[in-house]
């Protein structure tokens, strides 16, 4: 089990001020050294932080200092406005429907084209990989966004341990299939289970986070407990929830959304205001909890960290 962290018994408001304080400390003490990869455009920072390598065991979560100027979305909004079609196509009922979802015991199978395939028990996984906090913007393809303080560990750490073979080109995520617990899966309109994928270099990018917590507490069920991924420069649906299987593969995985509407949802799905979507404006977004609209930024503002992954690629054709 994860040790109870002080933040787990801290109310949100106190937590916020603590974070602010730590952010201040971080900025003074660490300077530019450890400033995160989550900087907003106003304060770009390209230094990747690897304060917690896969081999270090940190009892406390690493405060991943953040230079983001965005205001955090409230815990209430993050936990009551959920796109989680396994439970419901409506966002409001998800919190209630997911309340009794079983997240223990839970095992995550890491396999495919790797030298060290392994099935992790979720609690062992939490111990094995030191947890850090990262504040990421999340931009949903539907034109709304949030700013979320996740806790988790870089997917790169897990992949290094699995040791992909030279044939591995993509990572494929498979979410749980449990129609008894997930009413949405009793409906065959979508091809369950939820599948998502990343190119190996995207998966290895330091921004790609395996998420286990939110606001310093264990991840709520409606947000994808016990294990989800957060890929902040891509539309939210790329960040699969309730993951049970991570496979390294040679062929590009076909995601659930690519299957459902191939002309609308591509494999890459990078946040890109230049590529219009037939249903929603991708040039602007509504920040949850705030009034009015803001302009959407390419790669959701993480261009410094990830734009190089797509050098020479046509991102309109490869949407």
């Amino acid at each position: 089990m994860v040790k109870i962290r002080s933040s787990e018994i801290t109310p949100e408001q106190v937590y916020l001020s603590r974070r602010k304080f730590m952010k201040g400390i971080g900025a003074i003490a660490l300077g530019s050294l450890a400033l995160s990869a989550c900087g907003s455009l106003a304060t770009p920072d390209t230094q990747p932080t690897s304060t917690a390598g896969p081999d270090s065991f940190l009892a406390q979560p690493t405060a991943h200092a953040n230079a983001t100027a965005d205001k955090l979305t409230s815990l209430d909004d993050i936990t009551h406005y959920n796109n989680y079609y396994e439970f419901s196509q409506l966002k409001d009922p998800v919190a209630d429907l997911a309340q009794h979802f079983k997240t223990r015991p839970w095992s995550v199978e890491v396999g495919g084209l790797v030298n060290n395939p392994k099935t992790y028990d979720i609690d062992a996984m939490l111990k094995r990989f030191p947890q850090q906090e990262r504040v990421y913007r999340l931009r949903c393809v539907e034109g709304w966004s949030m700013v979320i303080p996740w806790t988790g560990f870089p997917l790169a750490a897990l992949l290094k341990e699995a040791d992909p073979t030279s044939r591995a080109k993509y990572v494929r995520f498979e979410s749980i299939m449990s129609p008894q617990q997930m009413p949405g899966q009793q409906d065959n309109y979508f091809k369950w289970p939820y599948i998502e994928g990343l190119r190996l270099d995207e998966a290895m990018n330091d921004l790609t986070l395996m998420v286990t917590g939110l606001y310093g507490k264990p991840l709520p069920n409606q947000d994808g407990a016990p294990l989800r991924v957060a890929v902040p420069w891509k539309y939210g649906f790329k960040s699969a929830k309730a993951i049970v299987k991570i496979d390294l593969v040679e062929e590009q995985p076909v995601s659930l959304w690519m299957n459902a509407a191939p002309d609308e949802y591509g494999f890459y799905s990078n946040v890109n205001p230049e590529r219009p979507h037939p249903r929603w404006s991708q040039t602007t977004e509504r920040r949850i909890g705030e009034a009015g609209r803001i302009k959407t930024i390419k790669f959701n503002g993480y261009a410094d960290e990830v734009a190089h992954l797509y050098d020479g690629m046509d991102l309109i054709a490869n949407y």
Partner: peptide
């Protein structure tokens, strides 16, 4: 304030 987290939508 009962119009979800995205009241305008």
């Amino acid at each position: 304030h009962q119009l979800t987290a995205n009241p305008i939508l």
